[in-house]
Design a protein around this nucleic acid. Structure first.
Length: 769
DNA sequence: GCGTTACATATTTTT
DNA sequence: TATGTAACGC
């Protein structure tokens, strides 16, 4: 985003708005982050607010980090210690740990992630003898999550029919089990904080007094609890600065409700509403296309995005014969532009509705030997091997953690099967202890343990594992190093060789464990407790390089907040882009539209839309009709790409597939509504979930090409002086948007990132000694 | 326990 | 198609 220029009048108005409630509707690319950070700077510099009195809430760690970087870069002072900037979840976790005295759990609670929740629910279903056919774990999980988002504890949950009664029983048990392991799930963090602040007015008032100014990012994505929390913290007359955009709300299915924006205006009738419509990212054609699509939605603040970047190219539209042709077209186009020297790999993003769509594109890129980056569904922390190691550490830290125990008790397999676990759990239940406690008893006393006889044949392997667990606990207590503990666990369980033997074809699984080991290393000083506490709240995006020099493949959801020079949106077919699951619900259709809108507005200079007449889904070829959303783009902005590309493609013999080689007339005109209108649309285009790596760059050989188009003023190893942090050495400097972000190792305060130009940064001619 | 097979099931995933 | 898993037999 530009930043050397002055704020535009609306931005200025937002930044310098006085006290009270401010609602900033920030269109895509309108300098939202800048307004937010400048606002904080303004509060501190001009209004004299202490950082201690400011709370800024975001949805992602990345956004929080970015804000810290920018604020510190601008102010030239450290605010991280005093100002609270973080995600809803991390802020709540922090509050809960501070106030645990008033809560039914310990301050060192552990946060369960989605997988943990899922397996816990599965176990409960089995234990309560509930019919697994009519109550799917996923559905139950959703029901519980929704209940929590709507501020319902089990006792508040409706029980007016059999179904609800069953849900209630699972929910109640689920909550009980979580507390028994001193664990909270993501939703609990918000729910318990809400309860804490509601039940304890004096605690609530403490926080109200502290947070004079509350700022929220991505306000359209708040759910009920989150919005209620904000209101609790701000109070009826508080200073609440909310930035959002109804049009970019794409997480409805997770409880997000963009109508909180409307609600905000009702709840705070005196609020100031400011509209940011000037776009600094895209050319006007892209914005007009986006406007055409989004204007059809109701319940929104009408906006007219404008840009001074010129009209730019027309929006390309390619109607492929089938999905392979679709991938082929995109890969060829990208390859051509790169080879011509007209673009760099990093300029491109290929966006799609569902992860399954990435497959053909991966094939196409691999076939051409082109590097690409896949931002995938499978998260780093969701990987089995990573989760296993975390579960081990959690179990050592807290042997009563039943969920972790269940996860690793027989991984790698050590002769503790279903029967043995049953015995163990039963004995625990009967003696009113946790399974972990019984296990430790067996480990310590062996055959002398009172539990030994009832374990039957499984006594030995159980005692053996118990003894190991005991050893690890001793290790943890005598040696604070997490890495040493991890290494010992790996050694004594033979985890590495088991993993390597077990993983068929997947070569990078051990790498993931090593990656976790690295992360643990960073926590050596803070200790295992903090490591475990933070683990679930850390997103893996933080560990990934920002701009690789290659095209990125990702879902429309994942691209939110990013921008690319050239964007391809693929799969513009009814049933894929408005996804067929959304057909019967107008709200869902509106969200599909927003999703498309978000995709379009990622493009800075060039946007190409692609669809396919036929697609393969579940081994079946379906005829598709063009997405209804295409009709909402002003038609004079669209340039059909078919004929041209067809001519070129016929010359590229080596890349043909036999399929379209013989195809009679695959090249269609721009609007093939007539031909496709006759085709039958068969419903299922539901894709399959890919289990891939979270964020992968392939082929690895081309992974880390060092580039940076624009020239940086500072370079690695430059010695510099900063107005308040003193002297330091530049480690890295790179252009992000229009900012130059300089990473500096300061003698006084260590590693910091600074925005050149925002702060006085003087190059020292002579090296500092 | 482990390996096989049959079977249903298949958006999106900030924390 | 392709994947995760439940059920079965060794």
């Amino acid at each position: 985003m530009e930043n050397t220029e002055r704020l535009n009048p609306q931005q200025e108005q937002a930044v310098t708005a006085g006290n009270g409630q401010i609602l900033v509707i920030a269109g895509p690319g309108s300098g939202k982050t800048r307004v937010l950070t400048q606002r904080i700077v303004y509060l501190m510099r001009t209004m004299g607010i202490r950082p201690y009195n400011i709370l800024a809430v975001t949805f992602t760690n990345k956004a929080a980090k970015e804000m810290v970087t920018r604020i510190e870069g601008t102010l030239g002072e450290n605010v991280q210690g005093s100002m609270w900037i973080g995600t809803f979840h991390s802020v709540c976790a922090r509050i809960l740990r501070r106030e645990a005295g008033a809560l039914p759990f310990d301050s060192n609670f552990v946060i369960m992630d989605t997988d943990d929740q899922q397996s816990l629910i599965k176990r409960i279903i089995r234990e309560l003898n509930i019919d697994e056919k009519s109550f799917k774990p996923n559905a139950l999980h959703n029901a519980i999550s929704n209940a929590k988002n709507e501020l319902q504890f089990p006792e508040d949950f409706p029980r007016s029919n059999y179904r609800e009664e069953t849900l209630y029983r699972v929910y109640e048990r689920y909550q009980k089990d979580l507390l028994a392991s001193n664990s909270l799930d993501f939703d609990d963090l918000l729910l318990w904080t809400h309860k804490l602040l509601t039940d304890n007015p004096q605690i609530r008032d403490n926080y109200r007094r502290r947070f004079h100014h509350i700022l929220v990012d991505e306000f359209q994505d708040t759910n009920t609890v989150q919005y209620q929390l904000l209101k609790l913290l701000a109070g009826p007359d508080g200073n609440l600065f909310a930035v959002g955009d109804e049009d970019q709300s794409i997480y409805r299915w997770r409880g997000a409700d963009y109508r909180n924006i409307l609600q905000f205006e009702k709840d705070y009738p005196h609020c100031q509403k400011i509209l940011l419509e000037q776009n600094y990212r895209s050319v006007q054609n892209v914005l007009d296309a986006a406007g055409g699509v989004i204007d059809r939605n109701k319940n929104r603040t009408p906006k007219k995005l404008f840009s001074d970047r010129g009209a730019g190219e027309l929006i390309g539209l390619y109607e492929a014969e089938d999905d392979r042709d679709e991938a082929r077209f995109v890969a060829d186009t990208i390859q051509r532009l790169i080879e011509n020297g007209n673009a760099k790999g990093g300029d491109f993003a290929v966006l799609y509705r569902t992860n399954a769509q990435s497959r053909l594109f991966e094939d196409a890129f691999l076939y051409r030997g082109m590097a690409y980056r896949l931002v995938g569904a499978q998260r780093f922390y969701g990987r089995r091997e990573v989760k296993d190691m975390i579960a081990y550490l959690r179990l050592v830290f807290n042997p009563h953690d039943q969920i972790s125990l269940t996860r690793v008790i027989n991984v790698p397999t050590r002769g503790i099967g279903a029967k043995a676990q049953e015995n163990l759990n039963l004995a625990a239940y009967e003696s009113q202890k946790s399974s972990g406690a019984v296990l430790l008893d067996l480990g310590r006393l062996g055959p002398e343990s009172v539990y030994w006889p009832e374990m039957g044949r499984s006594a030995l392997p159980l005692a053996d594992f118990g003894a190991k667990l005991m050893g690890w606990r001793e290790q943890m207590n005598s040696d604070p190093s997490i890495v040493n503990l991890m290494d010992r666990i790996i050694r004594e369980t033979g985890y590495q060789s088991w993993l390597e033997a077990d993983s068929d074809g997947e070569d990078d699984r051990w790498d993931n464990v090593e990656e976790l080991r690295k992360m643990a290393y960073e926590y050596e000083e803070r200790g295992i407790s903090e490591f475990l506490q933070n683990l679930a709240l850390v997103s893996d995006q933080d560990t990934v390089s920002e701009n690789p020099d290659c095209p990125t493949l990702m879902t429309l959801h994942a691209v939110k907040g990013l921008e690319f020079n050239r964007v391809f949106i693929i799969g513009l077919d009814d049933g894929v882009l408005p996804h067929s699951r959304s057909f019967d619900d107008p709200e869902e259709m509106a969200e599909e539209r927003r999703l498309f809108y978000v995709g379009i507005t990622r493009a800075k200079n060039s946007l190409t839309l692609v669809r396919a007449e036929q697609r393969m889904s579940y081994g079946q070829t379906d005829s598709m009709i063009r997405s209804r959303f295409l009709n909402d783009i002003p038609q004079d902005l669209i340039r059909p790409l078919n004929e041209k590309t067809s001519a070129r493609m016929n010359r590229t013999a080596s890349q043909r597939t036999s399929r379209w080689e013989n195809s009679p007339s695959w090249s269609r005109g721009m609007f093939s509504a007539a031909s496709s209108g006759t085709s039958t649309y068969t419903k299922s285009s539901d894709p399959i979930r890919r289990t891939g790596s979270s964020i992968t760059t392939k082929p690895p050989a081309q992974k880390s090409a060092a580039k940076e188009s624009a020239e940086t003023e500072f370079h690695a190893l430059d010695k510099v002086r900063h107005s308040s942090w003193g002297e330091g050495t530049v480690l890295e400097s790179k252009i992000e948007g229009d900012d130059e972000i300089v990473t500096i190792q300061f003698k006084s305060v260590g590693l910091k990132k600074v925005i050149a130009g925002m702060t006085k940064l003087v190059k020292l001619s002579k090296p500092i000694s």
